[in-house]
Design a protein around this nucleic acid. Structure first.
Lengths: 241, 241
DNA sequence: ACCTGAACACCGTTCAAGT
DNA sequence: ACCTGAACACCGTTCAAGT
């Protein structure tokens, strides 16, 4: 994983590494992971693709490094306001992650990938501290923090997908209208519920919806505070794998 | 999207389509999306790769179709018990989706992808009906159902990742031990919270943890029931995009 | 309607060779 | 330590041609 850091962080090497990452981010933003190619990247940087591969031996390594940089910047930008409460701090982190995925959709895929390291761990840490500050008891902190992380990244990815599908569309509202129209025409028997959500979908505000979801999870965490002292809900009626 | 269905659902064509999907699922299960290739698939089916591409003009189409089939079966298996309550029904759907992603990790990626259609819509519908049965007021149903869906798919994907990293390991506990050891050795200043979670990580049960997360979201939904009548939380202090 | 197989335009990765 | 560029072993997709 960190095998790709083969030289000291000083000197020309570090600058080259940075330049590669910056160029990679541009390509990724423009055309997603398919748009990032060692060859096109080499052309942009006026060098051979072997040079890039010396710094990042694998395409996956390069994307992971790019995501770490981009998320790192976003989190730094979302420094907790001095006197802000834990809930506000969580919302700030959530919005920062949501926005960075919206701006760089490939980051969402990367965050959801293999080793919980780098960027993902940073977000986990930031959220966890606020979960502690919220007064969540020790036994419930892992579940609470995980739930927040999953929701933030999951909702962010969903939004990234929407805005990506949207990219080709003239107007955002056209997109929602079309999708809502489709929902409204679903089979009344098979999709009875989804049909009723068509209007809700048409009028919905991504960002407000996202915050409402975060608040829902926060509400659940607060409720868990009270329930945790009691029982751990783990129905034994479900088959084990 | 449905452009690939170019022939009637009867006759030899349909059977060929099924055979292709079944073979594709095997390849996907074995080596993920990279393991699925028109050429290897053609070899397995003793035909030319052009034949496959006539049924599925794109690799993405094939994967999407495979995911729809696999998820469809899983949902059918998780039919709501006759007298079961809404919460139990939601847990049953959640576990079905969780398990199907665990058994077929590539399904998790597919569910999170572009158009909310096919499998994703089916899950949304199933959850939404139970959200209604739960007594959630109309204005909160979209948010509540989305939150459930995001959490289930997000947690499922995370689990799929764990079990995939695990695949190469001899023992599941070894994997958790190593990861926990890594967390325990993180920088005390930078990762103060994460370090304290090392023990929790070591002893954690994926499935129980997942259900706890679902219960957390359910708790949030119930809390929203009471709050929804009041205000819609949308702090104006946050910058708009 | 359904299948074949050649051809095209790419890929990521490896690696001997240079400086 | 860092870079070059050829070579390898693949890809997905297109498409004229068959049955």
């Amino acid at each position: 994983m960190t095998k790709t850091v083969r030289r000291s962080e000083q000197g020309k090497g570090a600058r080259t590494r940075e330049r590669i990452i910056d160029a990679a981010v541009l390509l990724l933003d423009a055309d997603g992971e398919a748009g990032l190619t060692f060859r096109t990247l080499a052309m942009r940087l006026e060098t051979g693709h072997g040079a890039i591969q010396w710094h990042f031996s694998t395409k996956g390594d390069l994307i992971a490094a790019a995501a770490d940089v981009v998320v790192g910047r976003a989190l730094t930008g979302a420094a907790p306001g001095a006197g802000a409460g834990a809930r506000e701090a969580i919302r700030a982190v959530a919005l920062a992650v949501y926005d960075v995925i919206g701006a760089h959709p490939w980051v969402g895929d990367q965050l959801a990938r293999p080793p919980w390291a780098g960027a993902m761990l940073k977000i986990f840490e930031r959220l966890g501290r606020q979960v502690v500050a919220l007064g969540v008891p020790a036994e419930a902190r892992f579940t609470a923090t995980s739930a927040l992380l999953i929701h933030i990244v999951g909702a962010g990815r969903q939004e990234a997908i929407n805005s990506h599908s949207l990219q080709a569309r003239t107007d955002r509202q056209d997109f929602l209208d079309d999708l809502a129209a489709h929902w409204g025409q679903l089979d009344a028997g098979e999709y009875a519920f989804t049909r009723t959500m068509a209007d809700q979908l048409r009028g919905h505000d991504d960002r407000a919806e996202f915050l409402a979801g975060v608040d829902l999870v926060l509400a659940g965490i607060e409720h868990l505070e009270h329930a945790a002292a009691g029982h751990v809900p783990r129905p034994s009626t479900h088959a084990r794998r």
